[in-house]
């Protein structure tokens, strides 16, 4: 599972009001090369919950992203784009679990099986 996906998911158990962001318990992370598509990244940048992404990437052992959401102008810098790209699309949670932030449960729908959030 990529962090872009993680950024869009929440816990949907009944009674949970704010199931985002899901905590990540890492067992195994793999990196997969993906071609960088700047247009897509710029498109996605405004849609991302920055804190969720940073926390997620740190949980997966990637510390290059700034803690505060950067200015839009940062999108012009290639260095930032490649870091953003790497965090968003190239880090894969191959094995691990997603933890509901409110109940602290490993939500039964949210455990990852062989890289697939279920």
């Amino acid at each position: 599972m990529r962090l872009l996906t993680h950024n869009m998911l929440s816990s949907n158990i009944k009674g949970v009001t704010n199931g985002f962001p899901l905590g990540i318990e890492v067992v195994k992370v793999v990196e997969k090369q993906v071609e960088l598509n700047a247009d897509f990244l710029k498109n996605m940048f405004h849609k991302i919950d920055w804190k969720g992404l940073v926390d997620g990437s740190r949980a997966m052992g990637y510390f290059e992203l700034p803690g505060e959401p950067p200015e839009t102008s940062a999108l012009e810098s290639e260095e930032f784009l490649s870091k953003f790209h790497h965090a968003l699309l190239e880090l894969h949670l191959e094995e691990g679990a997603l933890v509901c932030p409110e109940t602290g449960n490993i939500c039964h729908f949210a455990s990852t099986l062989r890289g697939f959030p279920s």
């Binding site: 872009l4 996906t5 950024n7 816990s11 699309l89 729908f109 949210a110 697939f116 959030p117």
Partner: peptide
């Protein structure tokens, strides 16, 4: 980007999205 096992009836998307 991703393939999810998800239910169209109970979508797992975060509220702010």
């Amino acid at each position: 980007i991703a393939l999810l096992r998800a239910d169209n009836n109970l979508p797992p998307w975060r509220p702010g999205l």
